[in-house]
Amino acid sequence: MEKGNLEIDLQRRLGNMTLEADFSCTAAGITAIFGRSGAGKTSLINMIAGLLRPDRGRISLNGVTLFDSSAGTDIPTERRRLGYVFQEGRLFPHLSVRGNLSYGLKRVPKEERRIDLEEVVALLDIEALLERRPAALSGGEKQRVALGRALLANPKLLLMDEPLAALDQPRKDEILPFIEHLRDEMALPIIYVSHSMQEIVRLADTLVLMSDGRVEAVGSVEDLTSRLDLRPLTGRYEAGAVLATTVAGQDKAFGLTELRFAGGRLKVPYLNLPLGQDLRVRIRARDVSIATEKPENTSILNMIECTVKAISEERSPQVDLQLDAGGAAIWARITTRSCHALGLQPGRKVFALIKSVAIDRQSLGRRDKSTRFLSEDQ
Rank of each mutant, 00 (worst) to 15 (best):
D251C: 06
D205R: 07
A187S: 13
A291R: 12
Q345I: 06
E88W: 13
R236W: 09
L233A: 04
E376D: 12
D184Y: 04
R214S: 10
A262P: 02
T77Y: 05
L51I: 05
P346G: 08
P269E: 06
S375K: 14
L137T: 04
V247A: 03
V247H: 01
Q277M: 13
L273G: 03
L209K: 03
A166N: 10
V357K: 08
R284K: 15
T234M: 09
V193M: 07
P54M: 12
N100T: 08
V357W: 04
L51R: 03
Q143F: 05
A325D: 05
L51P: 00
E119K: 14
N154P: 07
D229F: 06
E314Q: 13
R183M: 05
T257V: 09
T73D: 05
Q250G: 00
R372I: 15
A352G: 09
L342C: 08
V108L: 10
L167F: 10
R144H: 07
R265H: 12
A358R: 07
I191M: 07
R149K: 12
V221D: 00
F86S: 14
R114D: 12
T225F: 12
A262I: 04
G327Y: 08
A358T: 11
P295N: 11
E293G: 09
P76M: 14
S299E: 11
E296F: 09
G15R: 10
V242D: 01
M47C: 08
R56D: 13
G343W: 12
G4Y: 06
T77E: 09
R183N: 07
I300V: 15
L117A: 09
G57F: 05
D324V: 05
A122T: 15
R361H: 08
R286M: 09
R107I: 07
R260P: 02
R58K: 13
S220L: 08
V85F: 05
A136R: 14
E185P: 01
